[in-house]
Design a protein around this nucleic acid. Structure first.
Length: 595
RNA sequence: GGACCGGUAGCUCAGCUGGAUAGAGCAGCUGCCUUCUAAGCAGCAGGUCAUUGGUUCGAAUCCAAUCCGGUUCACCA
């Protein structure tokens, strides 16, 4: 149990014991004590004074006395300032914590809880390469999966590939028209970029044709529909749906190029999936559910034959679930896929990592699933994240302001190389070790940058300034880890095995501050899981690294004042390194032994 | 127009189940490498928490209104 939890329970017990009032531990507000006051944790008393009819001073004194005398293993003393009861935790508690965890490789890992969770993320289109927005999505998805896993859940990572539809046909048409039989191989181009280029060409040509028609006096709206290349694309979609062998062949070939490219990128950024769904397999799902919904009266049919659900009572609108021609719409296949996932994996929770522009869609999806009585409905959770914008505003593919994922990763790794060479600390590394280090640092900087802010909020990526390796960044934390490892390499060889410290040693302020930070790691992980928010972990690990660096500068570890101190500090350093490694690991970021 | 989200230091962001004098990083300015890695540390400076009211012992945090920005409300996906 964490100290904070202990304080809450002890306080509830104390109030019950002293005044006969029963209180839930979680009704007690416990904060870290502000640095300018004496104490480690603070109980805020204001909430109770009215109910207990006590002055803050009396209540604080009576409660403080009770806590110190009843839980001497936890509390040495207290002081009262206005309604704040500042508690000083015993050094023994922190020493015990350090002694039991410095060799615990699983510190932070919660035992399996029997829950199964699905996390769907990435959902790329197979007509263009991944960009910065996809990176945020991938890093978030991967990270939330790891956070749930470390909290004891069994996690299944899934991906839905949007591999069919009119947008896919656009790049296919363009290849037919302009490709001249070229392939990624013949042009030495990464497959997803190769296909993406044709998607761009489609749009260029389409624009030209519209202009040409407009020049003939045809209104824009009509021109958009009548442009020959668009008509050809629509015909191709029909051919695809009817299974035309030539089109199917082209479709498979071009998609395989894209997958090859995606695989390279995914491998590089560390995304992987336990199960990949393809829209070409799932787009017909959900049709039977429309029938069931009609029978149940959840849906209704209009005169033209189209099927709808009325969500106005829930504050939403009416929503179409089947067109009048009998074909299903986007949301219908999502309902079908939700059911399919349920049948296949029976997970209690199903998380969708999807941009906030689809908030409405997921609200509707969950509501419909609930009304249909799908057993999985309650577990649907939309992990909605904000768009990544540039200083100039939103990224727009039409204006060529999209930041390509592969380019960005390459650039980050190059900068990592450049900085590393400037510092010249790892000149003895082999070429292979160097390349690995550049990857770790470059990707670490990028991932940390995208994960350190609240997922819900949109964020600005400034290519000039965002690529920083100092301060609140991944490399700063990686550097802290490398420093610790350096000490441990040197000191552990010449030291007897670490032993438990006598509990009467006194902790210096920075030793204690570090202990306090380390001790809260499990509750941070828990909080991150509950909130579905990796940034909580990022912020925590940064603060931990900062705390360690202050400690490191102030106190020598290998030349500590006494052997006891040396052992204690080595233990602290060791836990810190482990927590950094685990915490960063949960963010999908590796930490180097040296840098 | 309806619904939802956001507005905190020059910039990027924490803090938001109400609690002590609102915190980081970057940028700017001062110091600190003959001692465990200076990708570091210590410090200075920087704020009408969009605005106005309300709720109360106490509001960046809750409520209302207003202003500004965004997303969404397709027989698109």
């Amino acid at each position: 149990m964490s100290v904070v939890q202990k304080i809450k329970e002890a306080t509830a017990k104390g109030i019950n014991h002293l005044y006969g009032v029963s209180l839930l531990p979680n009704e007690v507000l416990v904060n870290a004590t502000k640095p300018e006051f004496e104490g480690d944790y603070t109980v805020v008393l204001f909430a109770f004074i009215k109910q207990l009819k006590k002055s803050p001073d009396t209540l604080g004194q009576e409660l403080g006395d009770f806590l110190v005398s009843s839980f001497p293993d936890y509390f040495v003393s207290y002081n009262l300032i206005k309604g704040f009861l500042n508690l000083v935790i015993t050094d023994g508690y922190w020493l015990e914590f350090v002694a039991t965890n410095y060799h615990n490789d699983d510190f932070g890992q919660t035992p399996a809880n029997g829950q199964r969770v699905m996390v769907e993320y990435s959902s790329p289109n197979t007509n263009k390469p991944l960009h910065l927005g996809h990176l945020r999505n991938n890093f978030l998805g991967r990270s939330i999966a790891e956070i749930l896993r470390i909290n004891g859940n069994e996690v299944i990572k899934t991906c839905i590939v949007n591999d069919r539809g009119i947008h896919i046909c656009k790049s296919m048409i363009a290849w037919q028209l302009f490709g001249n039989g070229t392939t990624p191989e013949s042009t030495h181009t990464k497959g997803d970029h190769f296909v993406g280029n044709f998607y761009v060409q489609f749009n260029d040509e389409y624009k030209k044709q519209i202009e040409a028609l407009k020049a003939k006096g045809i209104p824009e709206e009509i021109a958009e529909k009548e442009a020959p290349i668009m008509k050809a694309t629509q015909q191709m979609l029909l051919d695809w749906e009817s299974g035309n062998p030539e089109i199917m062949h082209l479709w498979r070939t071009m998609n395989s190029w894209v997958y090859e490219g995606f695989d390279t990128t995914y491998k590089r950024i560390g995304s992987d999936f336990d199960k990949t769904y393809y829209e070409s397999n799932t787009y017909l799902l959900g049709k039977d559910l429309v029938e069931k919904g009609l029978e149940k009266g959840v849906f209704y049919q209009k005169e033209d034959g189209s099927v709808w659900i009325d969500l106005t009572a829930d504050g939403l609108d009416e929503k179409l679930v089947r067109r009048k021609d009998g074909t299903s719409v986007y949301i219908t296949q999502d309902i079908g896929l939700a059911e399919q996932k349920q049948k296949e994996f029976n997970a209690g929770q199903s998380i969708y990592v999807v941009g906030d522009e689809q908030n409405y869609h997921f609200k509707v999806l969950k509501l419909i699933c609930l009304k249909l009585g799908l057993p999985s409905a309650d577990g649907i959770y939309h992990l909605s994240y904000g768009m990544v914008e540039l200083p100039s505003g939103k990224m727009k593919s039409r204006e060529g302001t999209v930041v390509d994922a592969d380019d960005l990763v390459t650039e980050m790794v190059n900068i990592a190389r450049q900085k590393t060479e400037e510092l010249g600390k790892v000149k003895d590394f082999t070429e292979e070790e160097l390349l690995q280090l550049y990857d770790i640092i470059g990707l670490g900087a990028l991932k940390f940058f995208l994960l350190r802010v609240d997922p819900k909020k949109k964020m600005v990526f400034n290519p000039e300034e965002s690529i920083d390796f100092h301060g609140f960044t991944g490399p700063f934390i990686q550097y802290t880890h490398a420093r610790i490892k350096s000490i441990l390499r040197k000191s552990l060889t010449q030291l007897p095995p670490l032993e438990n410290l006598s509990p009467n040693s006194l902790l210096l302020p920075l030793e204690k501050t570090l202990s306090i930070h380390l001790e809260m790691f499990p509750s941070v992980l828990q909080d991150a899981a509950i909130e579905h928010d990796p940034s909580k972990v990022a912020i925590y690990v940064f603060n931990l690294a900062k705390t360690f660096n202050s400690f490191y500068t102030e106190h020598s570890i290998s030349n500590a004042e006494t052997d006891e101190k040396k052992i204690l500090r080595l233990q602290l350093a060791q836990i810190t390194a482990k927590v950094i490694k685990t915490g960063m690991g949960v963010l999908g970021i590796q930490v180097p032994e040296r840098m």
